[in-house]
Amino acid sequence: MKAVQLSKYDQQPELVEVPEPEITGPLDVIVRIGGAGVCRTDLHIIEGQWEQKSGVVLPYTIGHENAGWVHAVGDAVTNVAVGDPVILHPLVTCGLCAACRDGDDVHCAGSRFPGIDSDGGYAELLKTNARSVVKLDPSLEPAAVAALADAGLTAIHAVRKAAAHLRPSQKVVVIGAGGLGHIGIQVLRAMSAAEIIVVDRSWEALALAEELGAHHIVRADGEQIDAVKDLTGGNGAEAVLDFVGEGGAVEDGVAMLRRAGSYYVIGYGGRIDVPTIDIISTEINFVGNLVGSYSDLSELMVLAARGLVTLHTARYPLEEFASALHDLEQGKVRGRAILVP
């Protein structure tokens, strides 16, 4: 089968022929990929940022946002059948460790992360397990929702934390209205009545944010902190969801918080450098966010089926993966790039 594999860090991946995955265990599921999201993390992987953390052996197939149709199943799989449309939770989890038993499968002690530390979905077929597949509503097409498997899942994971504390009279700042942020805005609208302020450098991204329900848009032109302070009566927002995490966004996000506010770290690449006295004197909180749980993904698919969350996509044939990666790096993708085998 065809697959896009990384054979050396800091070099362009290659489209190669590799053996098809096979069923070897009773709970195995092989999925025929209908769409694979192109994520900024893929760029970081290619650059080698994940080399030490993932420990993956090269070459391997990248791609961790995947959806498609069930191609084959092990003899103990009962939740899906061959031909079912599915989206894949990005982690392949054990179901037996303490975290899985608690429903916190994001922190499974024995998980694999296809596309990060094992073969992913920039390919025609992907092997996962029965615990990782969420059956799609008939109204949802795999390529249209594939990137929700990580971008959307990460967004809902962070928004659920923030929404649990936000009241209708309060304000939340979203930094970045791109691939993750435009999903986060929609999830916020569905799960919270708080007033949403979106900050981005791009007028196009801000226009999309406004279409999706942002109450206020602020261009990051050097005056964004003052603009947010004006919109919050000089106090700052109760919550900041940072979908960028680098290039000055971290410093901006912390400055946009009010006392006892919470800063949700979603995008990454930068550093948090805040004097400890500033943290304790204002009682601000820093909350890390990885991907969400299987339950998060299931609930996100309910929102998608109801039309409350839609993914803006640009589709590329698998053979044009290099163009998709280039366009993402250059900021030319509106929403999310999707590879379609």
Rank of each mutant, 00 (worst) to 15 (best):
V4A: 07
Q5P: 07
Q5I: 07
Y9I: 05
Q12M: 13
E20N: 12
V29Q: 11
V31I: 13
R32P: 01
I45E: 09
S54R: 01
L58D: 00
P59L: 10
Y60R: 08
T61I: 08
N66R: 09
G68Y: 02
G68M: 04
H71C: 04
H71R: 12
V73Y: 06
V73E: 10
L91Y: 14
C94S: 05
G95V: 02
C97A: 02
G103T: 00
D104S: 12
G121W: 07
P142R: 05
A149F: 04
A151V: 01
L153C: 15
I156A: 10
R167D: 11
R167N: 10
V174F: 08
V174G: 00
Q186G: 12
Q186E: 13
Q186S: 12
S192C: 13
I196V: 15
V198P: 01
A207M: 10
R219T: 12
A227M: 02
L231H: 00
F243P: 02
V244A: 13
A249N: 14
G253F: 12
M256A: 01
G261I: 02
V265I: 13
Y268W: 05
D273I: 10
I280W: 08
I284M: 10
G292A: 04
G292F: 03
S293A: 03
V302N: 12
L303A: 10
H312K: 15
Y316N: 01
P317V: 01
L318W: 03
L318Q: 11
E319C: 05
S323F: 02
S323P: 00
H326I: 03
I338F: 08
V340H: 04
V340G: 00
